[in-house]
Simulated scan of single mutants.
Amino acid sequence: MTPVRLLGAADIRTLAAELDVTPTKKLGQNFVVDANTVRKIVQTARVTGGERVVEIGPGLGSLTLAILETGARVSAVEIDPRLAARLPQTAAERGVPDGHLEVVLHDAMTVEELPGDPTVLVANLPYNVSVPVLLHFMRTFPRLERGVVMVQAEVGERLAAGPGSKIYGAPSLKAAWYGAWRLAGTVSRHVFWPVPNVDSVLVAFERAETPAGTLKERERTFRLIDLAFQQRRKMLRQALAGALGGSAARASEILESAGVAPTARGESLSLADFLAVARAQAAHG
Rank of each mutant, 00 (worst) to 15 (best):
D117Y: 05
R82P: 10
R82W: 12
E69A: 11
V203T: 08
K40V: 09
A17Y: 11
E154S: 15
V33H: 15
M235Q: 15
M150H: 01
D107E: 14
G95A: 15
L83P: 02
P132Y: 12
A17F: 09
A261K: 06
E102P: 08
W193R: 05
E18Y: 00
A160K: 08
D226S: 00
T24R: 14
A85K: 07
E219F: 11
L6A: 13
V103T: 12
E112K: 11
L227K: 13
H100Q: 03
T24P: 00
V54E: 06
A108R: 05
K216L: 01
A85F: 11
I254V: 15
A153W: 13
P142N: 11
L68R: 08
A184R: 02
A276L: 07
L101W: 04
R52A: 15
G266E: 03
S188F: 00
G285D: 12
G179L: 03
G245K: 04
S257K: 09
T214P: 06
M138S: 15
R189L: 10
L6R: 06
P3S: 11
A85W: 13
T140I: 03
A251H: 06
A175F: 02
A264L: 11
D107M: 06
V129T: 14
S188E: 11
A160W: 02
T110D: 14
G245A: 06
L159I: 13
R182E: 08
Q238H: 14
G169Q: 15
V155W: 05
P142I: 12
V103S: 10
A261Y: 10
M1K: 11
S188T: 04
V4D: 00
R82Q: 12
L224M: 09
E154N: 08
Q230G: 04
E78Q: 09
L83G: 06
G28L: 07
V111H: 06
L271H: 13
E206G: 13
F205K: 03
M138D: 04
R158D: 01
L244M: 04
I41A: 07
R52F: 05
V151M: 08
I79K: 14
R220S: 14
I41D: 02
R94Q: 02
F137A: 04
G8L: 10
F222K: 08
L202R: 05
P211V: 08
A264M: 03
R158G: 04
V131P: 12
G116I: 05
V32F: 03
G266D: 01
